[in-house]
Amino acid sequence: MFSHFLLGAAGAGLYIGDMLFYAILFVVLMAAIAYFAWNPVSAILKERADRIANDMDSAEESRKEAQKLAAERKEALDKSHAEATDIINNAKDSGDRQKALIVDEAQKDAQSLKERAHSDIEQERADAFKGAQNDVAALSIEIASKIVKKELDADSQKELIDSYIEGLGDNK
């Protein structure tokens, strides 16, 4: 047991063979672990780190994109509000103008209609007056002529009456 304690030097001598064996064993073990575990796992770790970096980059990018889109939408919304107000104002203005125009026109039309009706009535009345005048004149002339005819030729009264009646009959 004490041979162990004195590094094996006291007993069976230094086991160079063991040292060699362990050195080779360790190198072989290291190579096997490198081939079967260390390198694949390191590759996976690197791939994962790359993936995470990529994901973070793309997340940042999409966040920026989303912010830009939101800003654009807000701007568009504001613009559409302004546009809507403009449109409504324009419509109101043009409606007002149209209203004024229509009312004006209607008033003018009514005025002219009224004037024409007035003149028509005037004309009618003048025409009727004229017709009546003519009739009265003709009637007066006829009566006058009949009276004259009677005074002129009393003898032929009968004839006159006859002719008158005849004339009436004709008139009928």
């Binding site: 001598g13 086991y15 063979g17 063991d18 064996f21 672990i33």
Partner: peptide, 22 residues
């Protein structure tokens, strides 16, 4: 070269265990 049988066996067993686990 002189080899210690115990060390050879124990070391190999330990290495095999490590390798199998990994």
């Amino acid at each position: 070269l002189t080899f210690n049988t115990t060390n050879i066996i124990s070391g190999t067993v330990a290495a095999v265990i490590v390798f199998l686990v990994v």
